[in-house]
Amino acid sequence: MAHWLSQPLSWTTAAVFLASAVAMLLVVLLFVTYAIYFERKVIGWIQLRRGPNRVGPYGLLQSVADVLKLLVKEDVIPDRADRTLFILAPVIAFVPAFAVLAVLPFTETLHFADLGVGLLYYVAVSGITTLGILLGGWASNNKYALLGGMRSVAQMISYEIPLVISVIGVVLLAGSLNLKEIVAAQSGGFWNWFFLKQILGFAVFVVAALAELNRTPFDLPEAESELVAGYHVEYSGFRFAFFMLAEYVYVFAMSALATVLFLGGWHPPIESLGFVPGLVWFALKFAFCVFFLFWLRATMPRVRVDQLMTFAWKVLLPLALLNLFLTALVKELVA
């Protein structure tokens, strides 16, 4: 890929880029399909159930059937909704979710855009999704959707700050904003991975990332028992599918990001295990992150909305700052 990226833009390179983007989209869609399946299975197992098992062998086609159902459903737009925004919102929510994938490196050679400010790009672009959610909540002209949308925006903005500050520690240690170089800085055994050196930063990152993803225990925007479904209560059919898709693509992106930033990317835990391809290591760590999300969902109740805000501003943010400060201090003293 690096080879192609360094070529001047021509019809061939454009075709290659397009082809690889489509391939990536397919991979992500496949991931989303089976992430949902896997989530339902894991939660089912934890709850002594079998999970989906009716469609296809072992229920493997369940998500496919669900998506098909959503696609053929009637597309309802409420009468009093703001039509343009209502239609636009799912797109705004989804496009950034896919766009952030461009900077994620999966192995040394398998990656797309190799941006110098990859991390910054990720954070900036993913922030746009918030807008989509707010628009969705607002345009639906529904009280529950509005409450859900507002909560969601408040939550995502508040947690973005500790999230970004917590990763600055990593940036300081690696000395780069380029995700590839951040991974490169973690080579040579798991004790070099940043989750150990940055244990505090990692903890803040995990919590803030959960909140960013709107996953349990921070799934307030769609708090079923309070807000019925939150910002997408009026959405149905494929527009709803877009919101769901955005959510799960972010699960993909965030898990990949956590792997890259803190879990050493494609590096094996011990040098001598280097014969296993990097992609496998990446996939393993990535799968663990995803599993962790599902596991949390099966365990935790939901945080209360006002506590959520105080937690972000009074606990996470100071912790993230402290982490930054300590990292800088240690780096100054040691180096």
């Binding site: 939660i43 709850q47 708090a223 099966a298 365990t299 935790m300 109740p301 939901r302």
Partner: peptide
């Protein structure tokens, strides 16, 4: 009650 508070598993355990 736990379901209201957003936790799903206790509900199914209790149901069992």
């Amino acid at each position: 009650y736990l379901l209201d508070l957003g936790a799903m598993s206790p509900f199914l355990y209790a149901m069992e």
